[in-house]
Computed example of a mutant assay.
Amino acid sequence: MDAIQRGLVLKVQSERMTGTYSLKGTMRALASARKCAYQNYQYVSSAPQQPSEYAHEVDKTPLFQVATQMITAVEAVDFRYLSDDEIKEMGFQDGVFWFSENLDILGGTMNLNAPDGNLRETDPSDISFMNSLCSGDFASKTRAVDTAEVDQRELHGYCIEGDRRLEMIALKTRFGTRVLYNILLFGPNSTQETTEREEVTGNIALHAARFVNSE
């Protein structure tokens, strides 16, 4: 554990894939997670939470693992998970979402049905949904991600609302009859530079590839 906390790069090699992962911010993320566990290990909700209408479709345990990897990638230490109601209000489903107020980043992951055709065919509908979240000028771009043995695409949406500038990134990875979506929304107060966002997206893409290869 100490090596992971203090290390800078983690290299993983197996018969199916080889990956290199940034460990920047791991010490702070693990410290924050440990503090949260100590503070809440005896917590019991005053009333049982009603199951989501999508709960029967997807086991969210793996999605929380993916979300944790995303949180580590952006080095968020002040995050909170969104409730099912908050997620549905945004128009998402079958997902785990979180928000970091300090970084002004909203992130999440979803496990949805795959299209009958290739993954690229869903780009227009995904971009259209991104556009619906923007009340100003909107631009987008899409590309295939060169990840070995994995069908993966990256979508970017850029929204300008007056003086506010937002960037949305959706990474989708196909596995069997399902598609794993990783979503990041950088708010107007986000201080991450373009190069940092590219590095974060690359790390998330590798984690997503590892996730689908393990399923």
Rank of each mutant, 00 (worst) to 15 (best):
D2I: 08
I4Y: 09
Q5V: 08
G7K: 00
Q13L: 09
T18I: 11
T18A: 15
T18P: 06
Y21T: 01
S22D: 14
G25K: 00
A33M: 08
R34V: 15
Q42G: 12
Q42R: 14
V44Q: 15
P48I: 07
P48A: 13
H56E: 07
L63E: 00
L63C: 00
L63V: 01
Q65Y: 11
A67I: 05
Q69Y: 10
I71M: 04
I71V: 07
E75Q: 15
A76N: 06
L82W: 07
D84G: 09
D85Q: 15
Q93R: 14
Q93G: 15
D94C: 08
D94Q: 08
W98D: 08
E101M: 11
N102I: 10
L103I: 11
D104R: 13
G107M: 03
G108M: 00
T109V: 02
M110K: 02
P115Y: 03
P124N: 04
S125V: 04
D126W: 00
M130A: 07
M130V: 03
M130T: 00
N131Q: 15
N131L: 06
S132K: 04
S132G: 09
C134A: 09
E154P: 09
G162Q: 08
L171N: 01
T173I: 05
R174A: 06
T177P: 05
I183F: 04
L184Q: 06
F186Y: 12
T191P: 07
Q192E: 12
Q192D: 15
E198C: 06
E198N: 09
N203A: 08
A205I: 00
A209G: 06
